[in-house]
């Protein structure tokens, strides 16, 4: 894929994320390409923890999918008592969106894909 197209895709995605950023219940996101990352979290002190989590979610999910002979992953959801994490790969970019549990992650998914 040509580099400028890939950069445009990345920027388009960032724009969509910016438009969602102030939605009630959204905590932030981590967007990664092979060369760069864009992080926006309400609590900057959590950047490292959430970045490690985001990476692990993609990695371990893929391992399970391989063991079960499943195809490429469309989306991943992890919920704790209060927080939900939606992870997906869009145009080759790994995106993790952190939100409060009450947020409808399907709406977020649909608005980004």
């Amino acid at each position: 894929m040509p580099e400028n197209e890939s950069t445009t895709d990345f920027e388009d995605l960032q724009e969509k994320l910016l438009s969602l950023k102030d939605q009630e219940g959204l905590i932030g996101y981590i967007l990664r390409s092979s060369k760069s990352a864009s992080i926006d979290l309400k609590d900057p002190s959590k950047i490292i923890d959430y970045a490690i989590l985001s990476s692990a979610v993609f990695g371990e999910s893929q391992k399970i999918a391989s063991v079960l002979d499943l195809d490429e992953i469309d989306s991943i959801v992890i919920e704790s008592d209060e927080i939900k994490l939606l992870s997906m790969t869009i145009n080759g970019f790994n995106l993790s969106v952190f939100m409060e549990k009450v947020v409808d992650h399907n709406e977020i998914f649909n608005s980004l894909t």
């Binding site: 959590k46 923890d49 959430y50 490690i52 989590l53 692990a56 979610v57 371990e60 999910s61 391992k63 399970i64 999918a65 063991v67 079960l68 002979d69 499943l70 195809d71 490429e72 992953i73 469309d74 989306s75 991943i76 959801v77 992890i78 919920e79 704790s80 008592d81 209060e82 927080i83 994490l85 952190f98």
Partner: peptide, 25 residues
């Protein structure tokens, strides 16, 4: 894999639900 994930998800609390979807299941 889940054990690994549990370690890394400590910042958000205990996992209650973990799911992913693919084209084949």
């Amino acid at each position: 894999s889940f054990e690994e994930l549990k370690e890394k998800t400590k910042p958000i609390g205990d996992i209650q639900n973990f799911q992913f979807s693919t084209k084949t299941g």
